[in-house]
Design a binder for these strands. Structure first.
Lengths: 256, 256
DNA sequence: GCACCTTGTCCGATATTTCGGACTTCGGTC
DNA sequence: GACCGAAGTCCGAAATATCGGACAAGGTGC
């Protein structure tokens, strides 16, 4: 994966701001500090340009030098801006409280998820108290059929609309298995009727995901709130989690 | 307040990236969505340039159009990058758990604070359950003497070093009152001995702040964890909070 | 010691981005 | 209905940011 998105003219010249966007998105995909030269190579940016830009960004604290060895990653300024964003969106602000309560109460990973285009993203993630934390990565796009929440987030569409909306290749799981479209559509209908959804061993063999829909005034599922737990979690405990999720989801939803 | 920081050549020309940094910092200071024309004026950027940049940033989801009326504010990408930052810093990741527990347990606002240069900043803020939430703003620089935590964060320095480190004008509170330097130094010594600090009615007349120090291997206070509560909170409850803070702080500190 | 690779800095040329200003809409006010 | 200000778009000119390549400083393997 190289340039992606950076519009270069024929000469290979690009605006600094476009280079910076490419750089930040690269770091986000990578989810780990990177060497400047690597960033330059992977984003298709000339080395001298990248050094120049990184210096500017480090000064602004958008990036941070790690282990003063030419390794950089996101800096505190990104957290401050992101925090401003979370505070500015009413639904997300309320969801933070809910997710925190859920995670604290059950000691399991709780999340708040939504659609971004035709992909699923985790918006909020509060890890549980487990040693080996089960949790997806915030802000990473994932095919809709790979997730429990995905089955709720498209439930306002008709079957053909859903299949038109989700790219064909998204029905193939990371391990190569295929999700049968009819089963997927059936899951969606059942989830809608039940007011929650449960999936087990979808992307991860030992994980169960429980999710409840957050609905807007039109009854459209705009987001979900969910637990991510080990697949062998006691049935009774799962029932309690579903109750809690439904309560939280109701508080976040616009009363019908 | 205009340009601030944006290095303009004599002609008034500046790099796009510098303009963008100015724009984001303006929004952060403002803490509210802004009209594009206002951003341009307030940051000293030509209007046509600002429109161009905002379009680019909206497309990248760094900014978001609010109410499609030319009003913009931070977008989800900032949250994703900020989230990556939080996860990448070990101390902050641990502090998130502590702050969440504290806030949940007592129902009051809990925070994790640090120094940024010679100013104090709130890094993590978990609001309590109060109707009128008492809470400072994440990522906003505040003079050290205005805060309880500030009295811990400089306790590795000598008196003259401290007074040299903190700008003279930072001893003046927002309402014009002066903090006497000798008293400030005494507070610091007492706080160090007690292992916590309490301040009341410093910036805000009705607020008490309780803080405990997080120390590194050298015993230097690199951060604090604190509660922000109404000044009339029962003494007994405050004692419990102090106990909780000390426990949390100990878990975050490097064992001496 | 030598060859080789990587990191980081520096410099001049030129392709391009920024900038100012003109212009069109739109909405409100008198 | 005329006037005014604000929002947004468009365009050509020129100041300059980006780029390639050269270079120095380390580090490593043989």
């Amino acid at each position: 994966m190289t340039t992606d998105g950076v519009v270069e003219k024929a000469t290979g010249r690009a605006r600094g701001i476009d280079r910076v966007i490419g750089l930040m998105e690269y770091l986000h995909r990578r989810r780990a500090p990177a060497r400047i030269a690597d960033i330059a190579r992977e984003t298709g940016t000339p080395r001298s340009t990248m050094y120049e830009l990184v210096n500017t960004l480090v000064e602004a604290r958008w990036l941070e030098m790690r282990s003063d060895d030419g390794i950089v990653y996101f800096g505190p300024a990104m957290h401050y801006f992101g925090s401003d964003y979370l505070d500015s969106v009413d639904l997300i602000r309320k969801a933070r409280t809910e997710v925190a309560h859920l995670s604290e109460r059950m000691g399991e990973t709780a999340q708040f998820c939504a659609l971004e285009g035709n992909k699923y993203v985790v918006v909020l993630n509060e890890p549980g108290r487990r040693m080996f934390r089960i949790s997806s990565e915030v802000g990473i796009k994932v095919p809709i059929p790979w997730t429990a929440s995905g089955r709720l987030l498209v439930d306002h569409m008709g079957p053909s609309e859903i299949l038109g909306f989700i790219p064909e290749e998204d029905f193939t799981l990371p391990d190569g298995r295929r999700i049968v479209q009819e089963e997927f559509l059936r899951d969606i209908a059942e989830a809608r009727a039940a007011g929650f959804v449960r999936t087990t061993a979808l992307v991860d063999r030992f994980t169960t995901c429980l999710a409840a829909p957050v609905r807007d005034a039109a009854g459209c599922c705009t987001a979900t709130i969910c637990f991510v737990v080990p697949a062998d979690t006691e049935a009774e405990q799962q029932e309690e989690m579903i109750r809690l999720l439904k309560d939280s989801a109701a508080r976040l939803s616009v009363p019908q």
